[in-house]
Design a protein around this nucleic acid. Sequence first.
DNA 1: TCTCTCATGATATTCAGTCTCCAGAACTTA
DNA 2: TAAGTTCTGGAGACTGAATATCATGAGAGA
Lengths: 149, 149
Amino acid sequence: MEKTPDRLDSMLGKLRQTGFRMTPQRLAILKILAESNGHPGAEQIHAAVRKNFPTTTIATVYKTLAVLKSIGEVLEIEFSGDYNRYDGKKPYSHPHLICIKCKKIVDPELASLADMTEKLALESGYELITHRLDFYGICPQCRKRNSGV
Amino acid sequence: MEKTPDRLDSMLGKLRQTGFRMTPQRLAILKILAESNGHPGAEQIHAAVRKNFPTTTIATVYKTLAVLKSIGEVLEIEFSGDYNRYDGKKPYSHPHLICIKCKKIVDPELASLADMTEKLALESGYELITHRLDFYGICPQCRKRNSGV
DNA sequence: TCTCTCATGATATTCAGTCTCCAGAACTTA
DNA sequence: TAAGTTCTGGAGACTGAATATCATGAGAGA
């Protein structure tokens, strides 16, 4: 269980270690990822970076995300109908709770998943690398909003 | 636990009930979905349908899949980098075991997921609708193939 | 058989994400 | 601090899965 000591420092260190260069745009993207509690998409990151660096293009955002993915410093949550979302705070595989109304994504606490994974690896003969566990539902706020109307 | 009595009949009945028409192309798609043990993508379904109905376009496949999704008779497994895959045998949410080498998808047995879901709903206050649980790893065949080389 | 819809097929369109190219910026070494 | 090398950013074209449009054709009840 990582404590989120200083995600930004961790990312910076890892980037330097692996020989990637630091640029202002890149630093801005790292900051956004390290600080955002939500799970922003590439376009949202792009919009945030452009506040300080207006010439930044979406390609730069994707390139930086690709770098971070390659060194395991960001988690990509893929959606086919929707845009992908990114998690820089917890770059390792973990469960998500996704509201189908407001698209909010939060991280629930969930033990017993590790046990389940281990058992499955044994029984199936697979070498398990990672997993994806998403629960789709309606968050308390949206439930209230609906019943109110 | 559904017994897969006759998935084709079940699909046909549901389509009729809900007022959708039957066409030869549609029947062909249903058959493919009801029979295939793998988890085919739209293009694979398309290729299979074209053996008997060469003029069928991919749009028809997608439209039929959309109809089946809307009545809950097919499960769509979304991938953002790859094409989506479809499961007509078990149209309800269930775990998948995905080989990252050969892209094969199988359905592992996994109890304790239901308990986990129920607990999460209670603790989070979410109204849970569905979930997605995918394990990514390397299947026994691919592991053998790799170590052999 | 008629008629009203709905489905099909051909094509265009969308949109997230990727690729290419090259100028310019960042590190390295001296 | 200057030269040389390699990486990065920006612009725009491109890709590929999926969707939309629309004229024509087919299903199914009356």
